[in-house]
Design a protein around this nucleic acid. Structure first.
Lengths: 149, 149
DNA sequence: TTGCTTGCAAATGATTTGCACTGCT
DNA sequence: AGCAGTGCAAATCATTTGCAAGCAA
């Protein structure tokens, strides 16, 4: 996955640079794991994908990369948080989450609907005196595996 | 407030009964606090509203009432979770959340838009082999207070 | 009485942090 | 050489749980 992957790493490096951080091997490994998975991963899952990583460093780097706008942290319950690449690096999307096993997969809405939502949310935010509104939509259900009990 | 409040407590009692639980004084106090606030509360906030409650019992009762479909637990970060009455007791709504102070307030979308969303989500869930799709929308922004830094 | 609820204190578990070492630059 | 990054182990902190005592049916 030549060019687009290189572009991604270039962009990550740039974003890290903006907050004076280097794009070290460990950080690259995290980004690679997230790119490879294509779906949000928990910390244990990340460590499985990249066995060289240490737990504490992974947490530290993910947290730092969240500040840098490189990754996003998703919290949906009591268990482990999930991490994914920031939308700026991938694209606007939402999540379909299984109530049974907690698996998360990405989903998108059609343009028209997204636009309607943006309008509605902008009004809501305005009325409430909020600025910089973004939104986050989670669809919950029971996945095929879990439905089989 | 008279009738509607009594109805609410009646309904709560019924839901608890379905899982063989009593509507004890402590549980009533929790529900009262949630009704009174009209907005999702953290556990510390709940204890402030109802000083008679004990932390562990409050957690235990909230968790149990979540099973009973009486309260809903909202998780949005690393700090305390927020609790609110279940939608079956209030009505379908979403949340406007301040990135600065974490304050949450309820918001609703117009019927038409909700309907479009339901259709879209139903299709998404179906395509992914998920059942029982529900959705959860969070609008994030910076509230007036926090904008003033 | 009989058992569900409560309160207190101790345990759990994800995440964070202190500190000394290592490896880029 | 100098300093940011790492690994290990210890600390945090919301939430959960064990157990003995209280209360309700």
């Amino acid at each position: 996955m030549g060019v687009s992957d290189e572009d991604l790493h270039q962009e990550v490096k740039a974003r890290l640079g903006r907050i004076d951080q280097l794009y070290t091997r460990g950080r690259q490994a995290l980004v690679e794991a997230l790119v490879g998975a294509g779906t949000p991963l928990t910390l244990p899952a990340l460590l499985e994908q990249a066995p060289d990583l240490t737990q504490s460093s992974a947490y530290r780097n993910l947290s730092m990369m969240e500040q840098a706008g490189v990754v996003r942290r998703l919290v949906h319950g009591n268990d482990h948080a999930h991490y994914e690449l920031a939308e700026g690096l991938t694209g606007h999307h939402h999540h379909l989450i299984c109530r049974g096993c907690g698996a998360i997969r990405d989903v998108t809405l059609d343009r028209q609907l997204e636009r309607s939502l943006d309008v509605a949310f902008a009004r809501i935010a305005l009325d409430a005196g909020f600025r910089q509104a973004t939104h986050d939509i989670d669809v919950y259900g029971i996945c095929g595996n879990c439905a089989a009990d």
